[in-house]
Amino acid sequence: MSTVIDVEHLNFSFGSGVLTQPVLKDVTISIEKGEIVLITGPSGSGKTTFLTIIGGLRQAFHGSVKVLDQQFINSSEQIKVKARQQIGYIFQQHNLLKSLTALQNVSMTLEINAALTERQRRERAAEMLIAVGLGDRLDYRPDQLSGGQRQRVSIARALVGQPKIILADEPTASLDKQSGHEAVNLLKQLAKESQTTILLVTHDYRILDIADRVVELEDGVIKQV
């Protein structure tokens, strides 16, 4: 198995000078291909910050963060944009584009890829939506869907580009127990089929059972690996 995410001695802090607020302290973790890792921990423990660094959304300066063999520490925007295209992101809120239908929302992931034809994009987006059980909701806008359905659209959106990594930030936070469980099980099932690595931040203990490994973060320090 190959290492997909390799983090060594990552330090990160907000602010500067006397106001410096360390968020991540000497974090070291490596995640293998196809692994499902859950990061838990109380609010303010730096979970989301860690996730945005791995996702190439936040620039870190100290330590080493290698994602898909790209070094993110002090990297250029160009490198991170390229890396983001291979990462599927699932947000706490569904974050769908409200003016687009489910199908169009899922297609947005594929529009970065110029190699596909418009027809191929539609077909792949539709297949993905069928796979998440929304085959009869292709042309519905987000405001016409329930919370669980929206989150399933956003799972479809994250998976349709066949990413190497899925990063999920509290994907069940806005869902009730049943639809939350459905959503993560769906995610797990689809990810296992395609050997996709999942890094999931949550403090929803009801979904710990899907993980291969649970990592707890507290005050920016990894407690147990």
Binding site: R84, Y89, N95, L97, M108, I112
Partner: peptide, 14 residues
């Protein structure tokens, strides 16, 4: 803003 940020996270460039 929120939608643009989402797209940015998905790998869309500025």
């Amino acid at each position: 803003r929120n939608e643009f940020a989402t797209l940015k996270a998905m790998g869309y460039e500025q």
